[in-house]
Simulated assay, not measured.
Amino acid sequence: MFQLHYLYWLAGLILLVVAVMSWRDEKNPRRLTTGLFWALYGLVFFIGDGAAAWLGARTLHIAIGLVVVVMALIAGLGGVKLGSYHQRTPQEREASAKRLGNRLFLPALAIPVVTVIGVLLFNNLPGLRTAVFGAGNNATLVTLFSMMVGCLAGWLIALKMTREAPAQSVQEARRLLDAIGWAFILPQILATLGLLFTAAGMGTAISHLTETWLAVDNRFVAVATYAIGMALLTMVMGNAFAAFPIVTAGIGIPILVVQHHGDPAVMAAIGMFSGYCGSLMTPMAANFNIVPAALLELPDRNAVIKAQVPTGVLLLIVNIFLLWFLMFR
């Protein structure tokens, strides 16, 4: 039966191959530390329940924490650098782009198409899900497995179209990872940060500060505080999903719902949208803002953010008024 940790092992294997390639790249001025960074990150994906049973949960958590600290030191001291990736010359790439034209989008489009087809098949063909994944609720695994198949399909299509060797695709993966650098691990770290903030009672602290220092008896002030708070905390954490339970527990439920008798469904929907406004304006949302700049090889890493700030601010203002008008009908 296919299990979730197989996907983790695959991700870890790819990162370890990237690490070995980095160590062998003599043109990388920081090849040892660059390889170490990706090797440590890859090893984390191989650690699972078996390691916890062998070492103990507390020891394992400490070990993972030390690994993250070492990775942070490597990245902070400039230990992740670009190297040589055996790319074609600019003239050869331009000629290939002209030859392929809009067909270049096919590998990228194959990923969502195959993912959707896979999810539909597993959900509608009797017995298929159980045969592949076993008994139980495997909704998340179905989606991730289908996406993996979609990525493999896109990879094979790209190899066929470009006539490149499979090893070159790994070189390109290494180039993108080195270009993105430390920002690549932000989603995992920020998700953990959200759990820590929630466990530490940050929502309660926000509620106390809000009720003490702001005139939340006024509905508009309360609504604006909630929406702006969602955007600001998302900018800090890089993830609206991580910010949502904290701000909602501190402001949304006790003030907007309990005190002002607002509609919780409207609050949740527009509140999340307000958080997404913050996602448009922060480098912490690496998947949305830093990765595209690296993929497009933009000279300014913050170019995507600068282009999105006007939209983010305008949408946030609109969300405040939408909450004010719709939540208390």
Rank of each mutant, 00 (worst) to 15 (best):
E92H: 07
E92K: 04
E92V: 09
E92T: 03
E92I: 08
E92M: 11
A95N: 13
A97L: 13
K98N: 12
R99P: 01
R99W: 03
L100C: 04
L100S: 09
G101E: 04
G101P: 12
N102D: 12
N102V: 13
F105L: 15
F105K: 05
L106A: 14
P107T: 03
L109F: 11
L109K: 04
A110N: 09
P112V: 13
P112N: 10
V116M: 13
I117G: 07
L121H: 09
L121Q: 06
F122V: 03
F122A: 08
N124C: 07
N124M: 07
N124I: 11
L125P: 03
L125W: 11
G127C: 05
G127H: 00
L128H: 03
R129T: 15
R129C: 09
R129W: 01
T130M: 08
A131I: 05
F133L: 07
G136L: 10
G136I: 08
G136V: 11
N137H: 12
N137A: 14
N138M: 09
N138T: 12
A139F: 11
A139H: 11
T140I: 14
T140N: 15
L141V: 06
L141E: 10
L144P: 00
S146R: 00
M147C: 11
M147R: 00
M148C: 11
V149P: 02
G150P: 01
C151F: 13
L152G: 07
G154Q: 02
L156N: 00
I157A: 06
A158G: 08
K160M: 07
M161V: 04
T162V: 01
R163C: 06
A165T: 12
Q168H: 13
S169E: 02
S169K: 05
S169T: 14
V170M: 13
Q171F: 15
R174T: 03
R175F: 09
R175T: 03
L176I: 14
I180D: 00
G181S: 07
I185K: 03
L186T: 06
Q188H: 05
Q188F: 14
L190G: 04
T192Q: 10
T192I: 14
T192F: 13
L193P: 01
G194W: 00
G194T: 00
L196A: 10
F197V: 03
F197G: 08
F197S: 10
A200Y: 02
